[in-house]
Computed example of a mutant assay.
Amino acid sequence: MRNFLKKLATLFGVGLSPKAPGTVATVATIPLVFLLNWAGPIPYMIVTFLLLPVGILAAEIYEQDKGSHDSQEIVIDEVVGFLITMVWLPLTWQAILIGFVLFRLLDITKPLFVGYLDKKIQGGLGVMVDDVAAGMVASVIMQLLFTHTNWLGSQILVG
């Protein structure tokens, strides 16, 4: 189980990418967003909710074995953060693009309380919490765009 969680922390090796592992992991999460969106809002929310404590545990175990905090190889936090960003949104290329850029921007720059959380909370929870916060901020912005503009385009029909 420990080995599985360490692999999950790196999204089965995606986090070992030599360049921009967080960005690569966010791109790798796009098919999961499509799959969960196709499954419906309840399965989407359940999987996202369950990935949070599992991700915290995976990050904690990875950190213990590596002896460092928030290694760039740990990318399960980007997966959960991007899933949060894209919840309850239409599957359009515009939504995916805007959500991707917005989440990565917030995750990288860590504005406001996102940066505070990143600095103050240690362990697996500390790895996950800033990306969850970035995903929540991005999700609120995306929901505002969805309900108040036509920037997110027309729904892609899946299935």
Score class of each variant (00 low, 15 high):
residue 98 I to R: 14
residue 117 L to G: 05
residue 119 K to A: 13
residue 127 V to Y: 00
residue 38 W to A: 14
residue 89 L to T: 14
residue 32 L to M: 13
residue 69 H to M: 12
residue 85 T to Y: 02
residue 32 L to D: 03
residue 60 E to S: 12
residue 151 W to Q: 11
residue 68 S to A: 06
residue 75 V to G: 09
residue 128 M to W: 04
residue 78 E to W: 11
residue 129 V to R: 03
residue 133 A to E: 00
residue 89 L to N: 11
residue 97 L to Q: 02
residue 63 E to R: 05
residue 130 D to G: 04
residue 22 G to R: 08
residue 98 I to T: 15
residue 28 A to Y: 08
residue 157 L to I: 15
residue 5 L to V: 08
residue 110 K to L: 02
residue 50 L to W: 01
residue 157 L to R: 14
residue 97 L to A: 14
residue 80 V to C: 03
residue 61 I to W: 01
residue 35 L to Y: 07
residue 139 S to Y: 06
residue 151 W to T: 03
residue 143 Q to W: 07
residue 25 A to T: 10
residue 107 D to G: 07
residue 65 D to H: 08
residue 37 N to H: 15
residue 50 L to M: 11
residue 67 G to L: 05
residue 45 M to K: 10
residue 7 K to R: 07
residue 32 L to H: 01
residue 104 R to K: 12
residue 112 L to K: 02
residue 77 D to L: 02
residue 138 A to Y: 07
residue 101 V to E: 03
residue 33 V to R: 08
residue 155 Q to P: 03
residue 26 T to C: 08
residue 49 F to V: 15
residue 93 W to G: 14
residue 5 L to F: 04
residue 16 L to V: 03
residue 116 Y to R: 14
residue 131 D to F: 05
residue 50 L to E: 00
residue 143 Q to K: 11
residue 64 Q to T: 02
residue 135 G to H: 06
residue 101 V to W: 07
residue 19 K to C: 07
residue 12 F to G: 11
residue 73 E to P: 04
residue 79 V to D: 05
residue 151 W to P: 09
residue 54 V to H: 01
residue 29 T to G: 12
residue 46 I to S: 01
residue 115 G to H: 06
residue 48 T to L: 08
residue 75 V to C: 06
residue 146 F to I: 06
residue 14 V to T: 07
residue 53 P to R: 11
residue 63 E to G: 04
residue 155 Q to R: 13
residue 107 D to K: 12
residue 21 P to N: 08
residue 60 E to Q: 15
residue 92 T to V: 10
residue 124 G to D: 04
residue 71 S to L: 12
residue 85 T to K: 07
residue 87 V to M: 15
residue 119 K to L: 10
residue 99 G to N: 13
residue 62 Y to V: 11
residue 156 I to S: 14
residue 103 F to A: 10
residue 12 F to I: 03
residue 29 T to S: 15
residue 122 Q to P: 00
residue 18 P to M: 02
residue 126 G to W: 09
residue 118 D to S: 12
residue 127 V to H: 00
residue 29 T to I: 09
